[in-house]
Amino acid sequence: MMIEFRNVDYIYEPETPYEMHAVKNVSFSIEAGEFVGLLGHTGSGKSTLIELFNGLLKPSSGSVLFHGTDISSKEVSMKEIRSKIGIVFQYPEHQLFETTVLRDVCFGPKNMGLPEEEQKERAKAALTSVGLDESYYEMSPFELSGGEKRRAAIAGVLAMEPEALILDEPSAGLDPRGRDEILGLIRKLWQERGLTVVLVSHSMDEAAKYAQRVIVMHEGVKTFDGPTREVFTHAKELSEIGLGVPSTVRIFSMLRERGVAFPADIDELSIDGAVQALLKRVQDKEGGHV
């Protein structure tokens, strides 16, 4: 078990008029090497959960364990946890603070005590992988466009080569190519290096495309937790809690409603799968066996 939440509650500003019970009795565990999507309406508690992951927030009750040890216990080094669990925050502005883009991305590796040579190597490789070339190295992070800031923030975390990568809406502000390339890269790291990934997203299409498992939050409560395919069969419940299902799933459900039958085992979650199934249905009919 890599990360485990046991009956975690989090209350912001307890016993004040602003008291907000943001996370309510949430339990789950994430194995090393899983790719988990974390979904939920705005204000459902996703970012709060994420800040609990690496000890930025302490549970009001319950506990968060990393490889079996409670991260709030004294023998745990926060510094170590933070280099092992890399977090890309929802607002990239909150993690960019150095004077140049290159220095910013070096910050993590530097903090880990790596030699300067290696800091730079890692930073440059990470910047290249998020599509920022040399012309960006000496720019101030504050001069970057919205999507460029996002890319720089992601590079900063990638450069630390963490064991687990927690991404809070990483694709917000990215253009479609950047989104596909960066999430594609993360999937590759997941496949090849066994990286553990938690991806917060408001895009059902994205969750369907990348996550094996999804956890759905609703008003601070964990409402669904299961294989992606299974969770997206709950179209009605998901839309009642501010979410929905991927576009392809909606299209198949409209077609079924209008009497077009498809086998139960088609892959409705991916474009490729949808194209295959849609094509086969028409070809079978033309071949005479409907």
Partner: peptide, 23 residues
């Protein structure tokens, strides 16, 4: 659009792929 870093809506993409395959 793709060469410019963009994309098309999912239904447009499905139609495009299916047309390429002869529908």
């Amino acid at each position: 659009l793709r060469s410019r870093g963009l994309d098309v809506p999912v239904p447009t993409q499905l139609a495009y792929e299916l047309k390429k395959r002869g529908l």
